[in-house]
Design a protein around this nucleic acid. Sequence first.
DNA 1: CGCACCATTTAAAACGTTTGCAATTTCTCT
DNA 2: AGAGAAATTGCAAACGTTTTAAATGGTGCG
Lengths: 347, 347
Amino acid sequence: MPARVTTLKELAAQLGLSITTVSRALAGHEQIALKTRQRVTEAARLAGYVPNTAARTLVSGRSGFVGMVLPIRGPNLVDSFLGEFVTGLGEGLVSHGSDLILAAAAQGQSELSVLRHVVESGRADGVVVTRIAEVDERLAYLRQRNFPFVAHGRLLDGDFAYHWLDTDGAHAFGEAFDMLYDLGHRHFGLVTISEPMTFRHLRQDGLAAAIARRGDPSVRLDVATAPRFDRGARTQAINRLLHAAERPTAIVALFDELALTVMEEAGRAGLAIPHDLSVIGFDNIAASAYAPPGLTTFDASIRQCAREIGEMLLTVIGDRPTTPLTRLVRPTLVSRASHGPAPTGRN
Amino acid sequence: MPARVTTLKELAAQLGLSITTVSRALAGHEQIALKTRQRVTEAARLAGYVPNTAARTLVSGRSGFVGMVLPIRGPNLVDSFLGEFVTGLGEGLVSHGSDLILAAAAQGQSELSVLRHVVESGRADGVVVTRIAEVDERLAYLRQRNFPFVAHGRLLDGDFAYHWLDTDGAHAFGEAFDMLYDLGHRHFGLVTISEPMTFRHLRQDGLAAAIARRGDPSVRLDVATAPRFDRGARTQAINRLLHAAERPTAIVALFDELALTVMEEAGRAGLAIPHDLSVIGFDNIAASAYAPPGLTTFDASIRQCAREIGEMLLTVIGDRPTTPLTRLVRPTLVSRASHGPAPTGRN
DNA sequence: CGCACCATTTAAAACGTTTGCAATTTCTCT
DNA sequence: AGAGAAATTGCAAACGTTTTAAATGGTGCG
C-alpha cells in the first residue's frame, strides 16, 4: 500500500498544482487540460485518495446520505422486513453512490425526535418513512419542513401531495375474498390489529369493498382485533373467532404472523387446514412456506419495493419534482395449501 | 413550530453572544456562567437547534458514525440475520448517540473497496466486519490502517490482535454430538458449505473434537459439502448423504437453512423425523420453529451479540484499548422435535 | 513588437463548528 | 480607590472541500 495521502492539499503539493486544479481535475471539469486531468486522476488513484465527506458536505450542502429511523422495540421484536427492506434500499442507492444512515430510536424515544435530529443536523439529503400511521406526525413535519422524503405507504386522505410507494393491500384482500367466495365460503373471519396504521385500513376496506361488490347478503364477516405486539391478546381474539357458536370457514389475516397464529390455534382446536378452515395471510414471510400445510399468502416483494423507494428518493433529492411520484405495487398471490373449498356439512 | 435557526451564528446573534460562547454553553463548559448556559440552552431548545454534523465532524475529526458494508447478493438472497443484526447494533449505538451507516456493495463490487471508501472518506469512526473469511483482506486492511473495528467472528490463527465477538459454534457442535451420541447415534452426517469462512472451520472442528474426545472407533462421520448459495448443489449433496448404502442416523447441519433442506429432502425420501433421522441445525431462524416437526437448533442470539458489538466498538473508538477485547458467546440449545433416539433396527 | 484572445491555472472565500489564546468584565482585598 | 486575581466572554484559526472571480502564460495577428 502506497503512502496514504489524505487531503487534497497533500495531493496538490505532490503534483505541484493548486488545490483548485486538483479538485477540478478530479471532478472532470473540461476547463482543466486533459493531460493534467489524467495526471491528477492517476496520482489520486495511486495515493488511494478519497475526498473527505464532511468537508464536501459542508460546502456543497449535500451529504450523499439517505436516512431512515430504526425504531427499537421490545427485546424480541424485530421488524420482520427490516433485512429485506434495507437490502433493497441499499441496492437502490448504490448506483448513485449514496449510503444509508440508520438512526435508532430507543424504546420510548419518539421516532419523530430522531427524525428531526437526522434532518436538522444535515446528516441526510432525504429520508424514507415506513409504517405510515393514520395521523402521522413524521409526514406532517417533513412536509412543513419541505424536506425530501418518500413514504412506504399512504395516508388515507390525500390532503397533501407527497411521494410514496405502497403495496396494494386493498386489491389483494379483494382477490382473497373473491377466491374464497368462489370456493364456496360465505362466513369469513378477519384477524386484524388495533393500531391506527393506514395499511390496516386499506386492506380491510379492500375486503369490505369486495364483499359489497359481490352483493350477496348471506356473506358474513366476523372481526377479531388485538394490539399488534400483544401475543396473549392476539391468541385470545383468534380463539374467540375459532370457538364461536358459528365458526367462520375462512379466515383472512392482516399479515402472516397473525395467519400463522391462526393456524397454530386451529391445530390446537383440532381443526384441519384447509379441510375445516381456510387461512390466508399477507406478506409471505419465510416461516409461511414452512408452517404446515404451507400458508397461502401474498408476496409484497419488499426488497424490490425498497429498491424502487431508494431510486425514487434519489430522484426527489435530485430533481425536486413538483408533482408527486406515486407507485402502487400489486402483490402476487402465493398459493399454497392453507385454503380450499368450504366444508360442505356443518361441523 | 418556531422560526428555524439553523446555525450557531444565528443563535449567537439572536442571543447577543459570540459563537464561541454559545458553542461552549451548549457543550456545558464550566467556564461559561451558569446563567448564560441556561439561557443559551433554552434558546437552542426553542429554536430547535441541532448542530451541523458535517461541520462538527470536520473540525473534531469524529463523525459519530459507525459503518458497515452491506453486500448485495443475488435477487433473492437476503442475509437472514441482517434485520436482527442491524437492530441489535442500533440498540448498542443509540445510547451514545451514534448512528449506523450502511454502505452497499453492489454485486460484483468488492466488499473491500466499499470498506476502504467508508474509512478513507472519514464517514465513520469505526466499522463492524461480519462473516470473517479464513484469509480476510478486510481485516488485513483495517489492521494496517489501524482503524477501529470489531469483527463478528474470529480468524483461525491469532496472528494479530484485534477486537472480536464470536459465537462459540465449536462448543455447540460438540454439544450436539454428545447429545446425539447419548441417544445412541453412531453414524453421523455433516452438511456444510465449501466457502472458506472461519465459522465453518470452527464448527466442524468442534464436532471433530467431540468425536475424538469420546474415543469411540465405531463413530462414523460423512460429510456433504456444497457452495453456500447454490441450492441445486446443496440438495444434491444432501441426497447423496440420504441415499447412501449406509445412511447416517443423525445429521448435523452447519446452519438452519441447510438443516431445513435436509428435513425437506428426508420427507421427500419417506424418512420420518426424528424416528428415522435426527436433524440438528444452528442459528434458530424463524422458519425453524414452524418447519415440522420443529427443528432442534442453537440460538446464537444475534441481536444481543450485535448490541454488544456496537458497545464494544464504541469503547474501541473512545478508548483505543491496547489489549484486544474479545468475547465468546455460547449459543443455547433450542430443543424441538427433530432429534431423538437412534433407530434400533437397521432399515 | 505589441495587443488581444484563448486556454489553463490559481487565490481566496465560504460552509458551520470547535478550540487555543487573549481580552474584557467582575470581584476581592487592602 | 486601586491593584490584582478570578470569572466570563470573544477573536481568530483550523478542519478539507467547492466555487467565484481573477491571474497567468502562450499564441496568432496586424
